[in-house]
């Protein structure tokens, strides 16, 4: 077993689960995980020993997830424009289904709604909720991963929590 393979074995599930919580689709999460480990192999020499490997890996993974999310949103907007101005009324780009293997069947609908609301939050607010509440990181670890102070993490979390409950109430009100 090579050093890189041992490294992959140690961190594969950590990276994959973070991706899964961010994009909520198994195929997309695997694609991002693959991309993360190729980047890691390429940038291994740039890693500075003063940071923890897991923190560094979390940062790379989050950046990849954010890029992926932005591309997906851009595609969605493009598909929307095409559907307005296009001649045929068909959806040209598939929006991926909610396919989170960590969510049990009985809670699928409820969790889908929760994740849909989470996806409407600004990137940093969404990230802070994923790190604190799903990955169960401490505020200090979250601050290190996001490259901000602990106070900023606290205020981001408060805003995220308020926006999430406001959006959830709104979506329940429409039902």
């Amino acid at each position: 077993m090579t050093d890189f393979e041992a490294f992959y074995e140690q961190y594969k599930n950590m990276v994959f689960n973070l991706c899964l919580n961010y994009v909520q689709n198994r195929e997309d999460a695997e694609e991002i995980t693959q991309d993360v480990f190729i980047t890691v192999f390429d940038k291994l020499t740039e890693f500075r020993a003063e940071a923890k490997v897991s923190t560094w890996l979390y940062r790379i993974t989050l950046n990849r997830c954010i890029d992926f999310d932005r591309t997906r949103k851009r595609k969605k907007r493009f598909a929307f424009l095409i559907s307005i101005f296009g001649s045929k009324n068909e959806l040209l780009i598939d929006v991926p289904d909610f396919n989170h293997p960590g969510v049990i069947m009985e809670q699928r609908e409820e969790m889908k709604q929760l994740f849909d609301t989470l996806n409407q939050l600004p990137e940093r607010q969404k990230t802070v909720i994923i790190l604190l509440k799903i990955e169960e990181k401490s505020q200090a670890e979250t601050a290190l991963i996001m490259g901000i102070g602990i106070k900023a993490v606290e205020s981001l979390f408060q805003r995220a929590k308020n926006n999430l409950s406001k959006n959830l109430n709104n979506s329940e009100g429409y039902k």
Binding site: K12, N13, F16, N17, L20, N21, R26, E30, T33, H100, P101, G102, V103, I104, Q107, E110, M111, L114, I129, K133, I134, E136, K161, L164, S165, L168
Partner: peptide, 15 residues
């Protein structure tokens, strides 16, 4: 509380 529902998410295995 709503956010506590996230605790029910289980860890998944990669392909």
């Amino acid at each position: 509380m709503t956010l506590d529902k996230f605790k029910n998410i289980q860890k998944s295995e990669i392909s």
